[in-house]
């Protein structure tokens, strides 16, 4: 069977000798008694928003790599933004240097 990675089983308890298996009749009687009690427990309803919360957790933990909602200006690489700003500043500087008369009083 495939081993589910990501969660390691808890450390095993200290080994105690296994009791001998019960006789089938004895086991069946105990099981039938218990089943009638456990059937009264009913079913438990899972939270209605579980299928929305889990993808949100995955998106948050993967920092948007999985299930990311692409919004405008979301996940813009900083390298490109800083490069763009440097080029803009250099252009502005060049314009100011080449046309001093326009901007001087």
């Amino acid at each position: 069977m495939s081993e589910p990675v990501g969660t390691k089983p808890a450390a095993p308890e200290p080994q105690v000798p296994e009791p001998s298996p019960p006789s089938p009749a004895e086991a069946e009687q105990t099981a039938a008694e218990l089943r009638s009690l456990l059937s009264g427990l009913g079913t438990v309803e899972p939270p209605t928003d579980l299928s929305e919360k889990v993808p949100q957790i995955i998106e948050r933990r993967s920092r948007g790599r999985f299930f990311g909602r692409r919004r405008l200006f979301d996940r813009i690489p900083f390298v490109w933004v800083s490069l763009l700003m440097l080029i803009t500043t250099a252009l502005l500087y060049a314009v100011l240097r080449m046309a001093p008369a326009v901007f001087s009083p």
Partner: peptide, 17 residues
Amino acid sequence: SQEVFVTVFKSIDSFRG
């Protein structure tokens, strides 16, 4: 339950069927 499904997502590649 949330953690179980997150683990399913992370380890689905190891499920061999």
